[in-house]
Amino acid sequence: MNCGTDPARLKIAGMSSDRIIQIERDILGRNNTMAADNRARFLADDLLVFNLVSSPGAGKTSLLVRAISELKKSRPVGVIEGDQQTSNDAERVRATGVPAVQINTGKGCHLDAAMVGEAYRRLPPLKDGILFIENVGNLVCPAAFDLGEACKIVVLSTTEGEDKPLKYPDMFAASALMLINKIDLAPVLDFDPAQTIEYARRVNPKIEVLTVSARNGEGFAAFYAWIRKQAAHQKRRA
């Protein structure tokens, strides 16, 4: 028997063949559970994990290659690379002697926690080290997917213009650190770092900012100091 709906479209329980089921479940619940599993595993391995995000061509891989060449001198370092296609980036990382696993997402526009959990199993032990996850170059989709990282680092290059944080706010809201890369080109481009920082803090008042050049190494000492601070912070929380 179907008694239909009342004017408020309220269904009467037991009086209709239709049922209303309240479920209240997070759409990203499955990813978030897997991200929590990853995070627990990373903490158990004393591993500091960063999720690098940016638009394509901001210089994530160049930045990473320079940073890991230095960081590997003092601790184990590993890299998980995400791209739609090719293993070019993993090969660039491996050329430094640092182990890297390439994930190809095919038509996918972001990494998810399951992909990262699987890739992590294929890396050698990195106890007490640092894992960098280089996400797919995309300033939109990766913002939604927690991978189990300690935090997201968004890379913005001076060639992209000052207003990226306003155009793609979700990513800047989700990140703890903004690295302004290609700072050596700023004078040629009339790029205004102060304006970029002001825009980023409209979206995320707490975001930290460093200016770097992956090409000439400018600003990397401050980046390493920031990483050491994060490592100390994680140890205190553990």
Binding site: K11, S17, D18, R19, I20, I21, Q22, I23, E24, R25, D26, I27, L28
Partner: peptide, 10 residues
């Protein structure tokens, strides 16, 4: 929030 709140089912 991004939640599935409820379903109407047979």
């Amino acid at each position: 929030e991004m939640r599935v709140k409820q379903l109407e089912v047979d």
